[in-house]
Design a protein around this nucleic acid. Structure first.
Lengths: 329, 329
DNA sequence: ACGCAGTGTGTAACCGGTTACATGTCTCAA
DNA sequence: TTGAGACATGTAACCGGTTACACACTGCGT
């Protein structure tokens, strides 16, 4: 037996489909009698409305597309948790569309969002503006998260990477560190670029301070490798700022293995404040990731529901958190 | 200007909608000329097929519902990562439906999956069989993950909790621990129950071994609280097995604060092998969570695509990982 | 000449809802 | 008695695709 449709319900309740629809959607003008008959039939048949059909005729899906790069770990789960909170509060479901690096399939998958979602939250810090424009489905409201904006084509919400990196720079300068190393993130990544640039700008304002920047890829392993290379190069340094916590943790391991004291010989700082940072006493920049997700989705839903356009661009604040790896042991 | 429809494309290309549809779906019997005209029109209009309309007429959505409890952290991101891998490989999108504890909305949200997904992966270790039956949408293929099965109504894939707990028990017995504590998970949770039960069964086979079980809720905090209470109660113990790593980490903190040596005075073990466990040297049971997600989704897609029913029930293997908190310091 | 098979295309029904509009009934005032 | 107005209900068009079926055209064998 196939699934019951609204017409099955109508014929069992001896009313028209219009009446069934009205009862189901809580429309006022329905007699008590009709309401009861319909309710009974719905229960008896175990009827559940068909979402695709409803979407088609109402042009609303009550789903929001979430487009994310190949994320792992805390960052992913936190941002989704924030979005999920808002989504379930406001009656939406989240449709996940991961953007696997270099997958041509990913692009077409995105366009397939048309007719499936009422809007999309897009986080793609590794895409250029042109790639982005070519990838996004047309006619779907978009909010960009942490992604290069398209000069006002879509509202964008970004982390205040510059402020965070500057705060770390100032902190290290205040500690009187002179030979500073920055382990940067992948070159194509917008967050990584902003952090590196702001950090360099501020740190080189210090008197007699040298800065050396090496490249990583945001993985713990790459942080470890980078520091090991520096150690063997004999190049002296007394502070390391990694573009994210993962790499900072890798750096800590390399230093520990080499017997360098942290923070006495080398101060270490990261970015993100993942839970592990707290356990390891890592100085870092706290990013309220879940809040970023919440805020992004709220803004998007506001525009989807027509409650006015959000401002073109917002910076999400971050906060310096000083812990043992730069403070007292 | 509204979005282009297939009829707009048809009229611009001077062909019928049927031909457009055939071209778009790579149907063979189309003349070269028609194909070109349609391709041109599609490009010119920026046409993208409307997913809801397609779903409705084809009765396929190419989406899979993922129903998860209020998860945070690694467990969530890992399981989703595994599913996502399979999903994008096989051309599906994931629709996330979190089951917030005690939210009546959650239930109705689940039924709303009808017409939106081709099947659902359901993980709800806190629901009873009856609750589950009342919550699931009818007529949608389901695979249960780590959830009390409904005696064969749906295929189920579960962690081999019993094997993991037994392995920990044997390990502790081999270390000659005599006064063992188990910090259990929430009482309504199926995983927690299985772990507690199997652990108790095996550990009490040891000669002259006592077991004390206290209750936690899977949070780090609750592990800390439990151990602190035990310490102040003066009750002696030389081993702690927490039902998950989070609680084990809390336990470690409480022990460290009290100055108890780990593993000399008290051996500590957890369950899950979250990344932090490796960093802290926590002995635990490794669960390949991403694999669980991959496997679950593969099985589900097989049944959705009619490649035969998976076995009614599968146990996902786990593995003991011995580290510093029970081994040599 | 005819029938027949094969090929490409178009027409229209259908998927399962929503909803504008028409219809029917009832009440009450003129 | 009649007509207006309020109200509940039903009919059918519509959302945007897919596809069964009908049709027209071609080239072939007899």
């Amino acid at each position: 037996m196939a699934e019951a449709t609204i017409r099955d319900v109508a014929s069992r309740a001896q009313v028209s489909v219009a009446s069934v629809s009205r009862v189901l959607n809580g429309f006022e003008k329905v007699s008590q009698e009709t309401r009861e008959r319909v309710t009974e039939a719905v229960a008896a048949l175990g009827y559940v409305p068909h979402a695709a059909a409803r979407s088609l005729s109402m042009a609303r899906t009550h789903s929001i597309g979430v487009v994310l790069p190949d994320l792992h770990g805390e960052f992913f789960s936190e941002i989704v948790r924030g979005m999920d909170r808002v989504a379930s509060e406001r009656g939406y479901l989240l449709l996940l569309a991961s953007l696997h690096a270099g997958s041509p399939l990913g692009t077409s998958a995105l366009r397939a969002l048309r007719g499936r979602v009422d809007g999309a939250l897009v986080m793609a810090p590794h895409l250029s503006e042109e790639e982005l424009a070519a990838t996004l489905p047309p006619g779907v409201p978009i909010v960009l998260l942490n992604t290069r904006g398209q000069q006002g084509r879509h509202p964008a919400i970004s982390l205040d990477n510059a402020a965070g990196a500057r705060a770390i720079a100032e902190h290290l300068l205040a500690l009187d560190r002179k030979r500073v190393v920055h382990i940067a993130g992948p070159p194509g990544n917008a967050d990584a670029q902003e952090r590196a640039q702001a950090f360099a700008a501020r740190v080189t304002e210090g008197h007699g301070v040298t800065l050396q920047t090496v490249e990583g890829d945001f993985s713990e392993r790459s942080g470890e490798v980078a520091v090991t290379a520096l150690l063997t190069s004999q190049e002296p340094f007394d502070a390391v700022f990694a573009a994210n916590d993962n790499m900072a943790i890798g750096a800590l391991q390399a230093l520990r293995q080499a017997g360098r004291q942290v923070p006495e010989a080398v101060a270490v700082a990261g970015f993100d404040d993942i839970p592990m940072a707290r356990h390891l006493g890592l100085t870092t920049v706290q990013v309220r990731i879940a809040e970023l997700g919440e805020f992004g989705l709220s803004e998007l839903l506001d525009t989807v529901e027509g409650r006015g356009m959000p401002p073109a661009s917002t910076l999400h604040p971050v906060e310096l958190v000083v812990r043992a790896t730069t403070g007292q042991a």
